[in-house]
């Protein structure tokens, strides 16, 4: 029964993702001068830190078979609200940042509770959440607001030098912490395993006596937290807040998760895959930038297309797996019935 030589099929999408990243990177190095500079890679991390954090949160949502369309709007709202609180009330970042994170927790928990208690499709609840958060940003300010708080500026402009001239920002450190925490959460806690179980088969999870309801609300709470954290990181990165920022980011986050090998229907996937999903998107953007003549709008189209391709690849891997199981069962039943007949006849 042991087939240790073969790779479990659940790793395939992840392998495809990592290979795609490596191939794209090699392509960039061959094609464009200056692409091989390590800073190109580190800029992927610096420029996409906020996307990584929110995509990691989204990974849990999608692993459980749900969806959250509100993340982009929440990031924008966090930026606007913190800029407003910092600028107009002179509040200390020590108050503003925890406040933002608390808001994310409350916002996510509310959406999760509505989804769970009223049995409403997640997309409609989070779509309303998205419009609510975007609207609130404009209620606070229709203009972009610059953040002049010294703490934000210091953190935002701080460079952590690695070797040579390459550097990363403080935000990347936050991403690293979030990533480690998320991997621990996903693989070493009951909460994480319950998320996987719900995504695999919610009915079974219920029959196994797992706390399905509580976990689902917690997933949206966690994602609310991640999107406000991403919002904080984003405002540190941009040093300004505006309701129009990061429009359409929900697709970027969902795309990162799907390109990262997580199955859209839930149950299969890895947090680390999502990181590569983000990196691939960043890489596409960088290549388009290096190319110079292509419009940056190709990024959105390429990401959309890639998402669909990955959904397609997943369904092929998934359905061939099912077919294989089905044919195995057919053979099995054929062999059951054949010897059974004479046995009964002789009775």
């Amino acid at each position: 029964m042991k087939r240790s030589w073969s790779i479990d099929r659940k790793f395939w999408p992840l392998l495809i993702t990592v290979s795609l990243f490596v191939l794209l990177y090699i392509y960039g190095i061959i094609q464009y001068r200056g692409f091989s500079s390590p800073q190109v890679f580190f800029n992927l991390l610096v420029d996409n830190a906020f996307l990584m954090i929110t995509s990691i949160g989204m990974t849990f949502v999608i692993l459980s078979g749900g969806i959250d369309l509100s993340v982009g709007a929440v990031i924008a709202f966090t930026g606007v609200l913190s800029a407003w609180l910092l600028n107009h009330f002179g509040l200390s970042p020590a108050i503003v940042i925890p406040l933002m994170l608390l808001m994310g927790v409350v916002f996510g928990a509310t959406m999760g509770a509505i989804i769970e208690f009223f049995k409403v499709q997640p997309f409609i609840v989070t779509l309303a959440g998205m419009f609510f958060a975007r609207g609130m940003s404009f209620v606070i300010s229709t203009q972009a607001q610059t953040i002049s708080d010294p703490f934000y500026r210091t953190i935002g402009l701080y460079r952590i030098h690695l070797w040579g001239k390459s550097f990363i920002s403080a935000n990347v450190v936050i991403v690293a912490i979030v990533l480690i925490a998320a991997i621990y959460l996903a693989h070493f806690t009951r909460f994480g395993r319950t998320v996987y179980a719900i995504g695999g088969n919610e009915q079974s999870a219920l029959l196994m006596g797992l706390p399905v309801r509580r976990t689902k609300i917690l997933i949206y709470t966690l994602n609310g937290f991640c999107s406000t954290l991403a919002g904080v990181v984003f405002s540190i990165y941009m040093l300004s807040g505006h309701g129009l920022y990061v429009s359409g980011l929900e697709l970027d986050a969902i795309a990162s998760v799907v390109i990262g090998g997580t199955q859209l229907t839930g149950g299969v996937g890895y947090v680390i895959g999502t990181v590569f999903g983000v990196l691939i998107q960043g890489l596409i953007q960088t290549i388009i930038m290096f190319q110079g003549t292509l419009s940056s709008w190709w990024t959105k189209i390429a990401v959309g297309a890639l998402t669909l391709i990955f959904i397609g690849v997943q369904s092929i891997i998934y359905s061939s797996k099912r077919k294989r199981m089905a044919s195995a069962q057919r053979v099995a039943t054929a062999t059951t019935t054949a010897p059974a007949a004479p046995a009964t006849a002789g009775d």
Binding site: R190, R193, Y196, A197, G200, N201, L207, M208, L210, G267
Partner: peptide
């Protein structure tokens, strides 16, 4: 009624995992 995406061990012990 198992979660086919999870490991054999988890399906046996999910909810009662040794910690």
């Amino acid at each position: 009624n198992l979660c086919t995406n999870l490991s054999v061990a988890e399906n046996i012990l999910l909810g009662r995992e040794p910690r």
